[in-house]
Design a protein around this nucleic acid. Sequence first.
DNA 1: GCACCTTGCCGGAACGTTCCGGCACCTCGT
DNA 2: ACGAGGTGCCGGAACGTTCCGGCAAGGTGC
Lengths: 337, 337
Amino acid sequence: MRRVRAGKPSTPAGPGVSATLADVARGAGVSKTTASDALRGHGRVSDATRQAVLDAARRLGYSPNRSARSLRTSVTDTIALHIPEFLTSAEYYMAFVFGVAEQAARAGLNVTLVSSGRVPQVDGLILCDPMPDNPVVDQLMNAGLPVVTAETYGGDSRPSGVIWSDHGTSLTELLDHLRARGARRPVLIASDSTADWTLTLQQTYAHWCAEHGIPRLLRKAPFGAAPEVLRGLVGELLAGTPETDAIVCAADGAAAAVLPEIRSAGRVVGEDLLLASCVDSLAMRTAEPPITAIDLRPRHMGSECVRLLCALLAGEAPHGTTRTLAIDMVVRASTRA
Amino acid sequence: MRRVRAGKPSTPAGPGVSATLADVARGAGVSKTTASDALRGHGRVSDATRQAVLDAARRLGYSPNRSARSLRTSVTDTIALHIPEFLTSAEYYMAFVFGVAEQAARAGLNVTLVSSGRVPQVDGLILCDPMPDNPVVDQLMNAGLPVVTAETYGGDSRPSGVIWSDHGTSLTELLDHLRARGARRPVLIASDSTADWTLTLQQTYAHWCAEHGIPRLLRKAPFGAAPEVLRGLVGELLAGTPETDAIVCAADGAAAAVLPEIRSAGRVVGEDLLLASCVDSLAMRTAEPPITAIDLRPRHMGSECVRLLCALLAGEAPHGTTRTLAIDMVVRASTRA
DNA sequence: GCACCTTGCCGGAACGTTCCGGCACCTCGT
DNA sequence: ACGAGGTGCCGGAACGTTCCGGCAAGGTGC
């Protein structure tokens, strides 16, 4: 608990210790007010003085103390990020995190991870795939801070901003594609999570089936279900409903996981059984055959969330702003019969 | 840039605005010094007053302003986390991140992600899989802050602490296992990254081969190589060196990616060709057949890094402390011939 | 010459916390 | 009765920043 900074505050900043604004002011021969104004571009400062201050700052390696700044302005230049803990979707979330980190760095913001419900002292929050029954999400939602969610939130409170993708349209497109490839009995294997995304997929599927006079063949697996469970499900499905000619898996990675089961049921993916996934990932690309999937562009999703949050914080976007992120179907051999 | 907090500082804290220490002191009828002492457990305070302060704090929903505290003490209660951006190893890194986040939350620390080289104002850094040729890593290493690395660092500077796993012993164990299963020509497919982990694997393999009078059949693929590249590699390997009876893949996910290629070369994994991975993941578990792999326990790795960093910060561990994290080989059908 | 505005700069208070030093009171031992 | 030592509490300075208000010097119009 000892103080880290060196003793004499009048020395021109020891090694490893960042110079203070007063040091810069002294170095430029001006007052700290002027130094601050010059650096922030706020007050009225002549070009010559501004240049002198800038030089001094660079020479001394000045970087403003964030705590002091934040104490004074009550702006932390920090946003919090919460992601659900599902290692099954690791690739999606990881890409999302990098998208957030990159865009935040660009905007000069720090990103802090929040796992518990303890609301951190930040300027705003980003919640990825918020599920209404998650108490942590609930606390964060009602913390009185600006919140941007990735995908819509099914709960009561309204976030300040939302970035969402039109999964309904995408799934319809995917189902149409399967139909064009000859599929007449497509099955949707969805998860039972409370994420809005899952629900949209199920509704869209039901709607599409009704529209095409096709029986609803929905199967549900627990969110983050073990591959064995998924396989068992598919095994039963193919044995019990052999007329199944296409399978769409909602969960990340599920389609790749069930491939062996399909094969051992004597079906040939891409030939007499079409297979597709609602989430693209490395596993889809590397599967044999590669699996048609919807690219959710998680990295873009991450950076767009930060963009929107910044706009909200700057007052450039109204509370309740909702933006759409385009997503793409990627057709691969598994549906190219 | 407007101030967020409400106007009159004498009101007992408006809604949504955290109470200040002065509010608590007033609420408990003591001075702010006493309030601070009572909450921190520092000075000499009678039990009765301490209780009164604690009550007032709870009643007012007091939570100390981190900026003010940090400004005063120059302790930020925040650590920075850097992970290399390789989405192929998404599952490993994701688990690592959660391990860090969880343990940090337990220790009352914030975690901020750092992607650029800009050194954040934190108490310490955790660098996951630091590669010597990464400029960002370099800057962070030499920031003059306590650093804990996950896996040893191959560069010049010495981190304050290291958590590492004995990949050499594990790979030896794995190779011995393959040999016991009849393999006489095991091939190692390594990546050409500069991570210490990769180098250790290659050295261990070379050493093991020499010891057993087995030809060194090392193949290198770029780190994060596309699955097609890996497949091409394996295809050539099996065509050119048909006496290959076991393949060990270093890179995360690689073993699962090359499975189809092996199959289409007419080899049967687990029967006439053993396959194993140096990194366990969902893909290894769900592959058909499931693939023997080394479980690196990334989540533990994450939390152990935080533990060590905390110990270093508290002065409970000496600079340069190195700790080992046990890792396990998980035998599955792919080597159970 | 005066009134007035603009420009360039600065003093100093405030943000919320920690903690040094000090003061008043009480309890003993002598 | 008195000093020594302990206990319980507090005043106020300091951390580094921002920014309000003010002041002097120079310019402009009359």
